[in-house]
Design a protein around this nucleic acid. Structure first.
Lengths: 141, 141
DNA sequence: CTAACTGCAAACGTTTTGCAACTTT
DNA sequence: AAAGTTGCAAAACGTTTGCAGTTAG
């Protein structure tokens, strides 16, 4: 996983995508760059907007295609917390999330700060894909 | 919370709805009945279908209105696990869920079988709404 | 009579799809 | 030329909304 900073050069990101088995087209590079230079919880719509701030460069179809590809290749992961839309998280290390039901905002919970213990036996013939904890919060004392 | 069995009479459910501050119209009674006589993880679409098996009785708008009302009154709760749709769960006791990413099926995890410890400090000015654990599983050994 | 409730159809927002055009090798 | 990729527009899907009509106290 790349560190999250504005300091990655295009060449660096390009090389990283290649290493992950992703052909680094200019659109994929644009999308990868937004993930590794700012806030790491982004919806498809967020990315579409961020990638097209200056000029129109990436279509919506390509944003969705690319996000699916990145998820498949393990570069990012989906966060299912908001009933209305999927978030994508470029932090693939084990961690959990606060979800603010009033604002729709996500925030990280370090995996050191919250432990899940006593994982029960999985249903027969099933393999573990992941354990997601969402701590829902609302405005109030 | 009512037990989940087919044995509840209409009068019983009607009385229970009244006790929860819900005016028991015939549509709400129909919807409440499907929740307490079978599988407890249902999507809005599931309920629409179940309630209209014999004859057309409840519109989609009313299904959604009623589900929102039931959630607001605490009779049922939403489960956000499937990226495509919301599930409604008539089991309002603390518990968690398996989610099968291949089939889209939900299954309960008893709260005795999985513990969350070390809940971190909430963001400033926020109150806890709930802690949801989703154990994602897929087909495979 | 009034307030609460319902149903229809249209609208909405997110995501997916079909397909033709464009790259890249 | 073949394979991979992109963009557009349309479609699909779950959900919400506006509003007119109905029902119940």
């Amino acid at each position: 996983m790349l560190r999250h900073t504005a300091a990655h050069s295009n060449d660096e990101i390009r090389a990283w995508l290649r290493g992950q088995g992703v052909n680094p087209t200019s659109q994929r590079l644009d999308i990868a760059r937004v993930f590794f230079s700012r806030c790491i919880h982004l919806s498809a719509e967020d990315i579409f907007r961020l990638v097209n701030t200056e000029d129109q460069r990436v279509s919506k179809a390509t944003v969705y295609n690319t996000l699916s590809l990145f998820v498949e290749k393990g570069l990012i992961r989906q966060v299912v917390a908001d009933p209305n839309k999927i978030f994508y998280d470029s932090n693939t290390a084990a961690h959990h999330h606060f979800f603010d039901v009033d604002t729709g905002e996500l925030a990280d919970i370090d995996s050191a700060d919250l432990k899940v213990s006593g994982l029960p036996a999985l249903p027969d013939g099933k393999a573990l894909e992941g354990v997601d904890v969402v701590v829902r919060v609302r405005r109030g004392r």
